[in-house]
Design a protein around this nucleic acid. Structure first.
Lengths: 193, 193, 193, 193
DNA sequence: AATGAATGAGATTTCATTCAT
DNA sequence: GATGAATGAAATCTCATTCAT
């Protein structure tokens, strides 16, 4: 019986969960796998979390709150809209590279309702912040007037596609700054500049 | 015993698989569910497919071949690069809306190896076609010179993000033509046009 | 793989369930025990019943319907109220001696709601029939006027106590005719006093 | 660390056990629940009792001794046999209404051997006291001669049925005095007939 | 070719009990 | 004496796969 403090064990479990869920998805990850990685017995997991779902959601919530906080900083603190835009993509991309477990936000496990509140809140925040940046750009005259709502959807889709690719198709990972450049300037030739 | 031709049964099974996998994901879909929907016995499935994995992959392969064929038509037949670009996104988006089972391509079931070849081939083709369109645009002077490889990654990520959103966050579905417009023109204000 | 017909298996399972539940109570009986006794695999049970609860309730319902049918015959067909009363107790007692699983009706498993509808219906019927017999006796002048409702509760309690004793304290099993004799001497109208 | 005397802790535990077992049954009650209610650690329980079974049986034994003492008083001190009889039923019924944990005496947990000695002793005492009351009634000329053994079984069954109904079918609870009245009319000697 | 009863391995979860501190 | 983290066995249930018919 390898004794540890409660807090230590909780952290070990969350960490093991994070890796295991990332690698195998929600259903693919078994409590046994998580327990083994955490160096604890299977029953022990249930001392800290009511069940698989709670374990997964706790981990996700932590991550989301973290990321949203970082993104909020970018959207609020950076004055230049183009810079803010670039940073938003960069931070999103770098964060999810460090925390691959965020792909779980994409899962369709347990019917469609799994963690739906947690996810919905994150998605809404993500969109809201992109819209804020773009609107600021339009107001300040840096950006063309445009359909802000649509633009935000496109940007968040792109980021979501990046997250997926990390796990599923790593050859497809773009450079965040290149990505921002494209979005800002477009593909069409500019006649003179 | 409702006699059908072998080919007919195979088709029925593939169709049932398609719907069931779409609705429940790979692990959530059970062979019994597929059998019931196909109007065949559980054992019968194994006369046509070696197992669940083969069944799923066969279905995916069919779908991918189909979609790639359509996309190839767009990339090859449409002369104007901007039109081709717009059509590429539109077709990708519309096709996956009709065939939600393509989200399976995103799954991480069975470790990372599940259907890896099938997916990789599709991803490569997808990227190849986008690159082809963009390169044509640059060559013909319609598009600015740019990092073609990166641009293609960004576009495919965006499409992949769309596919995911269908299931996970339907509020996030963008309009394909708006999307194309943004990619083509960018966000930054154009001084004169 | 010991092949049997579906109906045969179902019967075997119900029979095994009956004995196992009787001997160990609802919680004490495990699906493994039932499966072993039925000569089937644990998973096999779930082909025939959705779960432990359904298995148990199906078995109980069958039994209750059976017994109520027999008791109804007694209450309706026997003219003499004293005879009907005696027979009611005798049949109840003999039936539960043959079908000890009826003690399950007494369990408090799964909180208090387990099989509550099934049980409540039986209890109500049991009371209703006793009341009917007593009321007939009063109307025909064989029985003293009395609080019919209370009398019925007392009789059903007595029977319930008998059922329990079968399993818990077999030395306490009374003779049904003696029991009826005792109860009747209190119910029969006294010619002169 | 809330220091208490050993005896105090023991009492707290027994009290917690009593309530928890009453509410959830033997298997439904967990050691953790009992510990929490007692305001003691899980491990602490094992300092006072060897295990769940011993804890439960100790509690039952206490209860039984208590009740038997009360019933003994009734049987020995009350002169009039009809009064004694009525009081016996009343006390039994009221006591079990206050101490629902006595239904545990009815359980079939752990096969048939659980607490068998404790229960048997109680059952025997219960029967012995009823027999004593009836025999006194016969000897004093208040009661008809009858099969005392059978009569006692019937009475204890009735009480046992009442105990069960408390938990399982509360609509079935009879009034103890009505019950006694019914039983007595059958036992009391008839002056002339 | 086709069926569907049956299996067996593995999933999540619960819990009495132990034991290092 | 006392704690509560940890264990391990067992429970219910699911399901891809097999195979006698």
């Amino acid at each position: 019986m390898n004794r540890r403090s409660s807090a230590e064990s909780r952290k070990k479990i969350l960490n093991a969960a994070l890796i295991t869920f990332s690698d195998h998805g929600y259903r693919g990850a078994s409590m046994r796998m998580i327990a083994e990685r955490a160096g604890i017995s299977v029953g022990g997991l249930y001392l800290y979390f009511k069940g698989k779902e709670e374990l997964c959601l706790t981990m996700l919530k932590d991550r989301f709150n973290d990321l949203v906080a970082e993104l909020e900083k970018v959207a609020l603190k950076i004055q230049d809209p183009a810079d803010a835009f670039t940073q938003f993509i960069t931070v999103s991309v770098e964060y999810t590279k460090r925390h691959r477990e965020l792909i779980l936000a994409q899962g369709r496990e347990q019917g469609f309702t799994f963690g739906i509140d947690v996810k919905k809140r994150f998605f809404k925040n993500q969109r809201r912040l992109v819209e804020m940046i773009i609107r600021k750009g339009i107001d300040s005259g840096h950006f063309d007037d445009c359909n802000v709502r649509e633009a935000a959807k496109i940007v968040t889709s792109m980021i979501r596609g990046f997250v997926l690719s990390i796990v599923v198709d790593p050859e497809n990972l773009f450079q965040p700054d290149e990505c921002a450049r494209f979005m800002l300037r477009g593909l069409l030739r500019r006649k003179e500049q």
